[in-house]
C-alpha cells in the first residue's frame, strides 16, 4: 500500500509572511513531494495541513523532523510531521 510512505505536516501559529514558502523549501530540500495543502487563517491564527509523499527522501525522518522543528522555532510556529498511519488508524476501518 502506498500509504506507508505518506506523512502529515501540520503548521499552527500566528500568521506571517513566507510560512508556506519556507516549509515547502525544507520539504523540497529533503526530496519530498507535497500531495495536498489546506490552509486557513482565523483571527490571525494560521493553520496549515500538508499531505506529503515520503517515498523518495534524501534524508532520514528524524533529520527532516529536526529541520522542521528548527524552522518552527525560527518562524515562531509549531510544525509537526507525523506518519499518516496514525490518522488512518484512528479514523478509518
Amino acid at each position: 500500500m502506498s500509504v506507508i510512505s505518506k506523512a502529515v505536516v501540520t503548521v499552527i501559529g500566528f500568521d506571517r509572511k513566507g510560512i508556506i514558502a519556507r516549509v515547502s523549501n525544507v520539504l523540497y530540500e529533503a526530496g519530498i513531494n507535497i500531495l495536498e495543502i489546506s490552509q486557513t487563517i482565523v483571527d490571525g491564527f494560521f493553520n496549515m495541513v500538508m499531505i506529503v509523499d515520503l517515498s523518495e527522501p534524501t534524508c532520514s525522518f528524524d533529520e527532516l523532523q529536526d529541520d522542521l522543528n528548527r524552522l518552527g522555532a525560527e518562524v515562531g510556529v509549531q510544525i509537526r510531521i507525523q506518519k499518516n498511519e496514525i490518522f488512518e488508524a484512528m479514523h478509518q476501518i
Partner: peptide
C-alpha cells in the same frame, strides 16, 4: 483520504 477535521481531531 483523511479529512482535515480528522487530522485536527487527532491533534
Amino acid at each position: 483520504m483523511i479529512q482535515m477535521d480528522q487530522i485536527f481531531q487527532t491533534l
